[in-house]
Design a protein around this nucleic acid. Structure first.
Length: 479
RNA sequence: UCCUCCUUAGCUCAGUUGGUUAGAGCACCUGACUGUUAAUCAGGGUGUCCUAGGUUCAAGUCCUAGAGGAGGAGCCA
């Protein structure tokens, strides 16, 4: 007999049919004559109710039916006599596939703290919250591929191991097969990487952008969506040492096309979540509302689904860095010196508190900032004619801050070469990148979107460690 | 890396100016209940108060150090 997934079982109205359901027990409750088991198989957030008539035979089995146990149930699909559900399964035979000793099984039919569940990462998939997040994560993953595919972008697998340490996006993890107890040295005492696996120093990638640019300068429209590694000692709710990044890159376009693409993409995936993940979103919305009951009224955030619709409906606010500085200079918190870092003038790097003021207080919607001072941005960004700004664009979201960072790229060989020299980047590592500007260079642009930061926004979760199954952060590699 | 806070039962947490026997809800065990919805009702406490020192007649409570966790900042996606 073939297993019916609970998702389709709950939609079925074929009363009287014999069905096979398999899943894990969420709760068991009941009285002398009848027992009710809430069974979940992960296909949906909803459980199916198994009804068991208690007799000598079933009583022995029911003793082994505790929260967390795995069951295989054959029974009749019936219209529910109770009020909480439309259908239920009247059990004829229950087999306990795997017991879960209640004295040892840590998950209970109650609310656990997210901190506790992080320490039980191997079991937290079995909770409603993490099941919902996992299903949404899959759907967002799929929606991103669909968005780009439908628009003619090709997915590029950029390398995970890189020989370049000039990607310029942060500290890198080293990759080596050298014996760390006996590291070969050169005559002048340096590590002799010629004896290493690749014959040179190797690292995990911090960005697939440079390779994506190479592809875009042949295929016109590409994107990468892969793991990314940063060895920064960051201990925050929005940083991971291993995360997933989406990096589209396209030729024959400029910074405005870049902004349009990013805004379209964010709205597309948010719309996709609203269309296909409503049950999971509703659960997370209730969860968030419950969590925020303890907060003061003015500190509570907007209801999750309302927030998603709100972002979908409004155009993002677009302004230049220079305009943003003007707004911040004239803002109340700046004048009253309420900011920890008071803005003194043009050229200041914007801190989290400034970005949040713009997004959450001043505009109250997502903001795209462009044309930053060149000295606070990466070497590859296109230099403006004013000689002091570059065509960068950052998209700032409420609570999360920077969710997208992108730019039009410098396509002029001389300008790019000079910038590399100025910033002290070893040009021998960048020869292949520079050559693309020598041979058939064209205007092009792209951006990076942190997948987990998108997940934070869509799920309303507040800690990035809860939107990736097995988070890698400093001093944390248990699972 | 810097700053702040937290660590008490399996889980979530309370524990007053230091005071005698360590508290609640849930989970678990026993029983009741003719269909429950995190079922309900009655009974049962299952504890290295994070660890190691110290102050004190007396430490869950105060001090020092360490471990673990969380939040904020920086770096950024």
């Amino acid at each position: 007999m073939r297993r019916t997934e609970i998702k389709s079982l709950l939609q079925s109205r074929d009363y009287g049919n014999e069905v096979l359901v398999q899943g894990w027990v969420r709760t068991k409750r009941g009285s002398k004559n009848v027992s009710f088991i809430a069974l979940n198989d992960g296909s949906t957030i909803n459980n199916v109710q198994i009804v068991v008539d208690v007799d000598d035979n079933s009583a022995a089995i029911l003793e082994k039916v505790n929260t967390g146990a795995a069951l295989s149930v054959v029974g009749e699909l019936v219209e529910s006599a109770g009020s909480g559900q439309k259908v239920e399964v009247h059990a004829k035979n229950i087999e306990v596939l795997g017991i879960a000793n209640p004295d040892e099984y840590p998950l209970q039919p109650k609310k656990h703290s997210l901190e506790f569940l992080r320490e039980k990462a191997h079991l937290r998939y079995r909770t409603s919250t993490f099941g919902a997040i996992a299903r949404i994560r899959h759907n967002m993953n799929f929606a991103i591929h669909k968005f780009f595919h439908d628009r003619g972008f090709f997915n590029i697998h950029s390398p995970i191991i890189t020989g370049s340490d000039a990607e310029g996006a942060g500290e890198m993890f080293q990759v080596t097969t050298l014996n760390l107890k006996d590291i070969p040295k050169t005559y002048d005492g340096q590590v002799d990487f010629r004896q290493d696996f690749f014959g040179k120093a190797a690292n995990l990638t911090v960005s697939g952008q440079l390779e994506a640019e190479l592809a875009a300068l042949a295929l016109s429209k590409v994107y990468t969506f892969g793991p990314t590694f940063r060895a920064e000692n960051s201990n925050t709710v929005r940083h991971l040492a291993e995360f997933w990044m989406i990096e589209p890159e396209f030729a024959f376009g400029d910074i405005t096309d870049d902004m349009n693409l990013a805004e379209d993409m964010l709205k597309y995936v948010i719309g996709y979540a609203l269309e296909y993940c409503m049950e999971d979103l509703s659960f997370l919305s209730n969860r968030q509302a419950e969590e925020e009951k303890s907060k003061k009224t003015d500190e509570r955030s907007m209801e999750l689904i309302e927030k998603l619709r709100f972002v979908l409906d409004k155009p993002f606010e677009r302004l230049t860095y220079t305009e943003a500085i003007d707004i911040l200079m004239n803002s109340k918190p700046n004048k009253k010196k309420k900011f920890q870092f008071v803005i003194e003038g043009w050229g200041a790097d914007l801190q989290s508190e400034h970005e949040r003021y713009l997004v959450e207080k001043h505009f109250q919607k997502p903001v795209i900032l462009t044309d930053y001072p060149s000295n606070i941005k990466a070497f590859y960004m296109k230099q403006n004619d004013d000689g002091k700004t570059v065509r960068a664009m950052d998209i700032l979201f409420p609570q999360i801050g920077e969710i997208v960072g992108g730019s039009q790229r410098e396509e002029n060989y001389e300008k790019l070469y000079n910038r590399i020299k100025e910033m002290g980047i070893p040009e021998e590592l960048m020869w292949w990148y520079l050559e693309t500007r020598k041979f058939g260079t064209v205007p092009h642009a792209g951006f990076g979107l942190g997948f987990e930061r998108l997940m934070l926004f869509i799920t309303g979760m507040s800690n990035i460690r809860d939107v990736i199954p097995f988070p890698r952060t400093p001093m944390n590699l248990e699972f």
